[in-house]
């Protein structure tokens, strides 16, 4: 039994002290766990604040590594992700179904639409920085997110338009790299994204 009174039956899931193993947290975040393991992990997380903090930190900081690696790998990885969605097929979700349908959520989240400008990797001037993207139809709400190199959100703004100018008060540092992406909230509880684009602010 662990500190929380739970039965510990699987050493791959729990450490000797009754917490989730780092491997299991990494596998859970990477969605590489079986249904049974996912249940065991979530059951434990409900009652273990310490593991929830581990999970939050790993999710956030681990994502920095993942994001940088994704950007470094570039198109092949993105293409592989899209291909995976195509191979897995579109998934639908019953709004009344209360069990998480992760494959469907992933597939729906990976849908893409085109970011127009600035182009990926562009050097841009602060006084003319306007983000533009293709329309995903009428009545669509867009959310633009700008992050720094560590993946920390620097600025975010919503609009129904297909462009947003960077407000003057958002102080980007010259010579620094930033990353931006737009999420579109579509009808029928679907969403799509432009994927991450990189910009370099001109000195």
């Amino acid at each position: 039994m662990n500190d929380n009174g739970q039965q510990l039956s699987d050493p791959m899931v729990f450490t000797e002290t009754g917490h989730l193993t780092p491997e299991m947290i990494a596998a859970y975040l990477g969605q590489e766990v079986s249904g049974e393991e996912r249940q065991a992990v979530q059951q434990h997380l409900l009652t273990c604040k310490e593991c929830r903090v581990d999970l939050a930190e790993a999710s956030e900081l681990g994502a920095v590594g993942r994001r940088v690696r994704w950007l470094a790998v570039g198109l092949p990885a993105a293409a592989a992700a899209v291909l995976a969605v195509v191979l897995l097929g579109p998934a639908t979700r019953d709004a009344t179904d209360d069990t998480p349908v992760l494959r469907g959520e992933q597939a729906e989240g990976t849908a893409r639409f085109k970011a127009v400008s600035p182009v990926d990797g562009a050097e841009v001037s602060l006084d003319s920085l306007v983000f533009r993207w293709r329309s995903e139809g009428t009545g669509v709400h867009y959310l633009l997110t700008l992050t720094d190199e560590n993946g920390d959100v620097f600025w975010t703004a919503g609009t129904s338009d297909t462009s947003l100018a960077l407000p003057l008060e958002v102080g980007l540092a010259t010579g620094q790299r930033y990353f931006w992406y737009v999420d579109a909230l579509l009808e029928g509880a679907r969403s799509s994204t432009t994927g991450v684009r990189e910009i370099l602010i001109q000195p």
Binding site: P22, A26, L29, G30, D54, E57, A58, G62, G65
Partner: peptide, 24 residues
């Protein structure tokens, strides 16, 4: 070396959990 014992999940994620627990 324990990382290779399981092999699932991203190494950076695993490393953050190990490092955080060492902090604790």
């Amino acid at each position: 070396r324990a990382f290779t014992a399981d092999g699932r999940g991203k190494f950076t994620t695993w490393l953050v959990v190990v490092a955080r627990r060492l902090c604790v």
